[in-house]
Structures are given as C-alpha cells and as structure tokens.
Write a protein that binds this DNA or RNA. Structure first.
Lengths: 352, 352
DNA sequence: ATCACTTGTGGGAGCGCTCCCACAGTACCT
DNA sequence: AGGTACTGTGGGAGCGCTCCCACAAGTGAT
C-alpha cells in the first residue's frame, strides 16, 4: 500500500474535514466551527456534524491545523539542569504534577525539555527558533542564563518560576521567599533563641537572597542586632551545609539556633552539630527549607518552610495559557509585569 | 547565536523555503533537497543554498513538513504508570537517559507520556489515533494491557521493553532475566549454600517468571531437587518481601540463602531475617535484583543482578527508528520477530 | 549522428486545516 | 416600504512544505 499522492481512496486513510462535511451534508467551514466549539452554529447542524464525526471516527490532523492556524498546541517545560538532578529533586516532580494536572484540562501537549549541557542548549535554541511550541515554562533558571532573552527576542510567551532578580521582566510565579525566611527566624525567636545563625543558599539565586532578607528583617524587627558572623553562605548541597556549619561553630560557638536555606543543607549541618556534641533541639534548634522528604525522615524530624510547588506549577500554566491566548508576551503588549507570589507555610517538627 | 536581523525578509515573519530559494537563485525543490540532505545536488548549488539558509536564519516549519510528508519526527515514551512511580524508580530515569542519549543524534523529538489512570489512557488513545508520533516506546507493560494491540491496529511502529510473554509479537528489548536468575542461584550454590529460597516478583510479569525458570534450572543442573516450599511469590514491594520471607522461614527454617526477585523485596526480607535473629550472610546469604541504590546502601551491601537499562533504552531507540524508517511495524512486513536480549551482570557484595 | 542513460534542477499539485469574505435568511427598527 | 443589523452557512485562498514529473545538459555506447 504505497502512500502515494492522489492514490488517496475514501476507504484507505483517515477521514478528513471534507469527508465529514460531505457526510453531514454541510460545508467545510461549518465542520471546522463545530470542531473548534464556535458558538455560531445552530444546534441541529452541530448535532449532524457531531454524528458524522462519530461515525467516521474523525480525528483532526494536528499538523494541518498547526500549519493553517500558526500554532502548535504544545508548550515546553524547560529544565536547565541535567536529567539526574531533575529526577533526584522532588521540586521538579511536584512542579510537573501541578503542571500536568492543570494542563490535562486542555488540549495542550506538554513537552519536557532538558537543557543541561551546551549541546542540549543549542538544540533547544533551534527548537524555539522553529517555534515548535506556543509557550515556555522556565524553572530553576540562573541569573545569567540567556534563555529568557532569547525567548523575548523570539516573542515566545514564557513564564518563569523564581524571578532572576527584582527587575525580572518575564511573567513569574514564585513562593514568598522573603516571608519564608522571615517566618523561620520569627519561629526561632518565639522559641526563645537569641543567637540564630543562617546558612544561605547560593546567593546568585534571587530566592536565596530574599530568604536572607526575611531573616534579617525578622531579627531587626524583634530588636536584635544582625550579627554578620552568624551568616554563612552555602550552595544548597549537603557538603556545603557541613562546611558552613563547621565555619559557624568555629566563629560563634554560642549560637543556639540555625536556619538553613534548604533541607539538604540542614542535613549537612545536623551531621556537624552531632559530631560536635550539640543536641537538637536542646542545644541548637534547627530549621530547614523546602519541607522535602528529608525533613520528615530526619532524626529528629526537621522543622521546615513548605513551598506550594504544585500550586506554583498550576499558576504558571494559567498565566502562560493566558499569554498564549493573547498571542504574545505580556511585556510586549505594554502591560504591567505580572508576578504571582504564593505564601509559604512553616511546618513545625521536633528539631526546633 | 545570531539570527540575522537585518537579513530578515519583509513583514518580519520567518523566512520560508521559497524565500531561501529566491535568495540562492535556485528552485524550491533544490532547497528542499539540500535541507533534507539529498545527494542529488551539485556541490556549488548546495553551498549557495547553505549560505542563503545561514543569511536568512531559515528554520524549517515543522508543521508544514509534517503535513506534506505525513510524518511527525517525534516518538513517544509511554509510561503506563502514575508519575509518582516514574520518579521514584531509577529504572525509568536510567531508561530515559539511554533513550535521550541515542535520540540526541537525530532530529527526533521525544515525548514523555504518562498513562497511569483511565483519563490519561483515553487521552493517549486519542493522541495515537491522531498519529501525532511516528513511533512508540513502551516500558513496563502488564500482560493484559490493550495498548500494544491498539498500536498494532493503528500500524504505529512500537518497541516494548520486556516482552509480555514468550509469544510477544512486538519488537522487544529485554535483559536476560533467565540468565540473571540463573546466575544468582549459581552464585549462591558456589558459595556452598544448599537450601536456597526464592522470593519471586509478580508472576504476571514475564520477566519475573523467567527469573524463576533460571533459578530452577541452576539448581537442577547442579543436581539439586527443586523444593517448591522454598519458592514464595512476592509482588516487587517491600511489604511483599517481608510477607514472603516470614512465610518461607516458617515453612523452611533451615534455609541458608534467599534470592529475591528485586532489591526492594530483598530489603523487606532483610528486615524479617534480622528480626528473627538470622545473620547476613553468615546464617543466610541474600541476593537481590536490579542493583539499585538500595543494594549499595543496604547493611550489609547487597549482592544483586544488574540489568543494563541505559543500554536497553539505546537499543530500543535503534530498533524503533529502523521501523519508523521502514514506515510500518516489522510484523506487518512479514519479517521475523525481532527480540534483543542483553546480558545481565552479577554484582557481588557482602550479603552473600 | 542517434539513442539511452544519468545527474541536476524547476515547479505544479497537493497535504488538511483555519481564516475570512460573501451572502441568504430572519428580525427589528424607522 | 426600506434600512440596518445580526445569525448561520459555504467555500476560496492560502499556510510552507514534500513529492514527483518534466526537462535540460552531460556522458557514453552504438
């Protein structure tokens, strides 16, 4: 059965719009309107078309639609990390869950694209240049990443999770890192701790900076001087947490609490505290960030700041679909920047 | 990457084949041939076209190509499981790694599709009916899954990892489960164990059956009678492993080795053995299957059968791309069934 | 010189859809 | 009565590509 041109017989291939139209005794345009849910069709006609569609088992040809309408009905979730991290961090799977849930309401197709190395990034650039998606979801983007600019230049709608800076131009969805940092510090203050150290995340990540800001303001507002020797930069890794904790204990042996910018770093800090004979929470109270599985399984269970990641995924899709519907990025329409910030929640456990 | 702004043709749209042809002073067909790597183009013409492509920043329109050529340049990796399992099991991420690596050599796009519940499955069926992918990779399919039949009916090329039975009609790639089971048993025999129990995986999974077969034959070939009371069915879960182990110990307290059909079940078995005061490996030697992270981190580290999952992913892509190139499933071409079986490897650790 | 190939090339004819204009029919105003 | 809306409908004109046929030019055998 050669799939040659012209050799297209009625019984052979998939039915087309034209065939459905003939069967229903209407025109091509009318069938198209029914398929696309236009209100400008009488009930009788609509019923006839739907019957024909069902009888023939008609399924629209996506390629033809994409070509004619100049849209793809697909959006990409771009992960600028190697796949390994994607699978190991619950952040991504939670995000994907929210995104998938929200998207399943629509006809949109989700593409998962990794851009962890140069080769993959070149591929991605090619991909975007070909406009193979209607919109892009960007997660976990570093401050100096050129991707957002490329997107803007190509006029592809995009939503970013975690703005790169206070001046982020893309529509963004984020959790309230400032409030999260603040609530962690306030919680420790309320527990009567006076020497609260902070192990920060990578400070080129905007959210990590904001957590520090929240921590500082909480202390200040409570009438405490912020002691810079109680702040040590980490890098979100367990090893970084160990290193920072060691540093902090050496510098300020009198600390009585630690707020770590991630659960993983808190795990590192915990090891060092144990080694040095500090009891948790008796001698040193410990608070983490992310409320990941680590927090629940730590000994003692770790108090941590929960981010509504799944919800973030959902909101990102909502915003992106709006922009896709408007057919261009919000900024180039001259609208105000759109930023959604979702509240965090402190989950109190035995470590504080 | 600098897309030539100045060179952009009028109306600001993306350049088309036609425009490239005009610029290069050739016909549309010639540009198409160059783009698609046809050998029937003179070197001079090819160079001229390539220059025009570069100057205009031409990128082919995928939708137009798909419509005209009746192909999508995309393949789907279908995971008939909820996303949760996908992320928690290293099997999938290893598979994805192999698949991704092999695919990055091509222009093919990989789609990750979950079909864990009825709703998702209906969506998938619709998706396949619309022929939105050129081929499908099926992983972890149960014996009674209707998906393979649907694929055959739609004449969509597909490759399955782990045949559903000895009579599998789809092209398949699998690891040598028989050999793996055999090597586990032989290893324990070589260690001088005589009462070797086996906790099987779910027996509706063909691979689990094959492991049992390998285990039986190894014992028989070594001159041992196979004692049916030493075989207990599990279900691949930790709880199942505990249950089976409890059963086995009650039935045959004299067992001196256990071969579990998965590392997770081995972990369950280990707990029970500990509770009952059996030392590993002194009293009871333990061997698992999968060589997952669990095996390396168990106390004592678990001897386990490693499957080359990444390699399986690569081979699946190879086979699938061949079938896609041949434009139809191998079976309907009347070719012999194609089955690739990759060797397993026993990784010996302290538990045996 | 003729014929039979081969190689390289141009361009017509679609692929199956959406968009949009034209227009008949109806309804409600002046 | 004519005018002005709207509603529902049909179908032409593409979207940007691939496929394939036609054909010019070159090559070698007869």
């Amino acid at each position: 059965m050669a799939t040659g041109h012209g050799a297209r017989s009625r019984s052979g291939g998939r039915p087309t719009l034209e065939e459905v139209a003939a069967r229903a005794g209407v025109g091509r345009g009318t069938v198209s309107r029914v398929i696309n849910g236009s209100p400008r069709v009488s009930d009788a006609t609509r019923a006839a078309v739907e019957a024909a569609v069902a009888e023939l088992g008609y399924v629209p040809n996506t390629a033809a639609r994409a070509l004619a309408a100049n849209r793809t009905d697909a959006i990409a979730l771009v992960v600028p990390e190697p796949e390994t991290r994607f699978f190991s961090e619950p952040y991504f799977s939670d995000m994907l869950k929210g995104v998938g849930a929200e998207l399943s309401e629509t006809e949109m197709q989700l593409l998962l694209i990794f851009a962890g190395n140069d080769r993959e990034r070149r591929r991605l650039a090619q991909y975007l240049a070909a406009h193979r998606v209607d919109g892009v979801l960007l997660v976990s983007v570093h401050a100096d990443d050129p991707l957002p600019d490329l997107l803007a230049q190509l006029e592809i709608p995009a939503v970013i999770s975690g703005p790169r800076s206070a001046a982020e131009t893309l529509t963004s969805v984020d959790s309230d890192n400032y409030g999260g940092g603040r609530s962690a510090a306030e919680h420790l203050l309320a527990r009567g701790r006076g020497r609260i150290a902070h192990i920060t995340g990578r400070l080129d990540v905007y959210g990590a900076q904001r957590r520090v800001d929240g921590y500082r303001d909480a202390l200040r507002d409570a009438g405490h001087e912020v002691d810079e020797r109680l702040i040590e930069a980490g890098d979100f890794t367990e090893e970084g947490g160990r290193r920072a904790m060691t540093e902090l204990l050496a510098r300020s042996p009198d600390l009585d609490a630690v707020f770590a910018g991630s659960d993983v770093m808190a795990a590192g800090a915990r090891q060092v505290l144990r080694e040095k004979g500090r009891r948790i929470p008796d001698d040193v109270a410990l608070v983490g960030y992310d409320d990941s599985a680590i927090a629940r399984h730590m000994d003692p269970p770790l108090t941590s700041v929960r981010q509504p990641i799944e919800e973030m995924g959902r909101r990102m899709i909502d915003l992106l679909l709006e922009e896709v519907a408007d057919r261009r990025p919000a900024v180039s329409r001259g609208l105000e920047r759109r930023q959604v910030v979702l509240a965090t929640e402190l989950v109190t456990r035995a470590s504080s």
